[in-house]
Design a protein around this nucleic acid. Structure first.
Lengths: 206, 206, 206, 206
DNA sequence: TATGAATGAGGATTCATTCAT
DNA sequence: TATGAATGAATCCTCATTCAT
């Protein structure tokens, strides 16, 4: 759905309300799961009326899309500078995984929510809303990074960057659910372990 | 919940119908996603009335549980002998990944469906029905395998078997969704790639 | 509904089955209440298939009517001779109440069932099936008895026999429900108490 | 179950709608009986949509409980002052019966409805919602009254107050159904008749 | 006779959405 | 801006009944 208004036209209050609703929606999805996250429950958590959500968002879909957009934007803002600061292949890979999992640890609910949303969007074959089918985009970007370092001889050249990108993203994307379902899951040591896995798997034999 | 009848008491027709319904449910879930897979849609696909599903299954939950049970059983039957036939760590790992992905390729919808179901069950915190919270069980079994070969010196000992198991399962479990969403995804070459990833990551340095 | 066959045409087996079904229905109604007493549950209790009930009875209504008919017949057979054996007004009244409550005590479920049925029939304004709206018939018969003894000077003449009949029947008809809901309810001493109540209320002042 | 909101928080419109729905439910139950009184029929009678009932009440049970609560409250408000104004045993008893039946006459449908509801609640063994299993409470209160006057020598002491209370309540509770099923039933003269019955049965011999 | 199979109606509930105020 | 009110669709489930074997 297209937004109710162009972003630029929004008043201060409107922007604040949208943010408040988005936050409530994230927490609700993280707590009760996507399919039980009705507008009623989201409104209740935000302490506002059901109607107000409809007032600020064209429909449920716009709200969901907004969540996605926001979280992706934040995560990019956090990770991109860190990743681009690295100049070696192994370094980039380490920081990529590390910054992803750190961001997940510090934004648990946000990530639980978008993973939930992504699954539903994929499952229901509705990749509209985002210009490009979200999880794929992340895979593609990572694959490009890998390919670049393969070319420069900084990573092994005998693997398909796309396949490995899928595996890395899978290992990362599984973390939010783990985090919420398994109290013993230690995301930091998990990070170190999979950094080693993909480091060994992609590092050139010296 | 509990089945309408003990399995042994079922008529030929009853068994056939149950199977037909289970199949229709699998295809429906694979096509429209878990949350849109209503009994009505499942019945429509099977070409039967809504009531007939209720006649053969105590409730939606029994149907879902039956799907899970069936697919897990089939996949075990397919993979277990292949995996246990291997005596070396790397061999086991290769066959584990390979047989999983082969099974996925040959039972696309089945796997799409159970991954969908598993997500929902996790998300809604209701892992009842199956003795043990399904995806975890798979992780745990794989972790045990890895640990065993670590102890026998057949795999590196400097990684947490549980963490690596999670990563391997993630790489496998992501395949069904890929398969259905991305027409260019080549599961066989993906298999070879991730076999190499985890082989390099776990193989002892000679 | 009219019965499937004239009573005379029934084979031995048919008669036995009908009786078995009627018994199962009585126990089911007594246990789970009228509205939860589905044909499925009745069949299950009888250990037969759902279809068989439909084979022996035109519909649920015929079954229910049959229960009513049977229990009323039995209760008449038990009570009538006892009541008509009495020649005085007070004696008749005592035996009327006593034999009713004794019959109730000895046929708990049967009585619970028909009271349940009667309520539903009244409530749903469907007094068809029986030539005459059941509870009314009992009231009317009792009122006639009372009136007869009033005329012969054997009971007070300053009460409306119909009103008192209603009150007596109410005191009796309430017993089955009490019996099943209140474990401390002692039907025998209750009988003595209400015998005294209606004796004092109707006895001529000597 | 528990109401959607605390009673104090309700809007004017909300209060009015709830009352309207309760009224429609009472009339529907009185007309077609408890088990046929579906939310659909109730909504139709109220001239509103099915969903609106769910909007104002948590579920069917809350609606039913609300009916019970309301009618009991009204009937208490009507009867209690009249009964407690009496100081003698026979006087109390007369006013008890009289006020009950007057209230019934003036609130026909209300009483038909709550008797219907009470039966169902008893039959299905689910006396929750109300603090105490309703009909029993009425019996108990009356039994206490009777016992008090027995002790003070104002009523015969040779009857069980509980048994007589059951009989009196039965005579009263049967009136709503009579009223609706039997057009010739004259509740006022019925009142006078059973007042005499229980007066004669409990009055001390002077 | 008896069963299992199948249907379709009806019922309670949840929910996204619309609208008047 | 914000709310409460209201709707109607969708969903799961139960059930009486019908029918072929």
């Amino acid at each position: 759905m297209q937004p109710r208004k162009a972003e630029a036209d929004r008043t201060f209050i409107e922007t604040a309300r949208r943010a408040q609703i988005v936050d409530a929606a994230i927490d609700t999805i993280a707590e009760v799961g996507y399919s039980r996250a009705s507008l009623g429950r989201i409104a209740a958590r935000a302490g506002i009326s059901r109607g107000l959500i409809s007032y600020h968002f064209t429909g449920k879909e716009e709200l969901i899309t907004e969540i996605l957009r926001g979280v992706i934007e934040q995560s990019r803002a956090y990770m991109l500078p860190r990743i681009t600061a690295q100049s070696t292949g192994p370094g980039m890979l380490r920081v990529y995984i590390e910054s992803n999992l750190t961001f997940i640890r510090e934004h648990r609910n946000h990530l639980i929510a978008i993973v939930e949303i992504a699954r539903h969007r994929i499952a229901e074959g509705a990749p509209r809303g985002l210009p490009d089918h979200e999880p794929d985009q992340a895979v593609r970007a990572l694959a490009q990074l890998l390919a670049r370092f393969q070319k420069s001889g900084d990573l092994r050249s005998d693997f398909d960057p796309r396949a490995v990108a899928i595996a890395i993203r899978a290992a990362i994307d599984v973390a939010p659910a783990r985090l919420s379902a398994d109290p013993q899951f230690d995301i930091d040591s998990y990070a170190q372990d999979i950094i080693q896995v993909f480091d060994l798997a992609t590092r050139t034999a010296d």
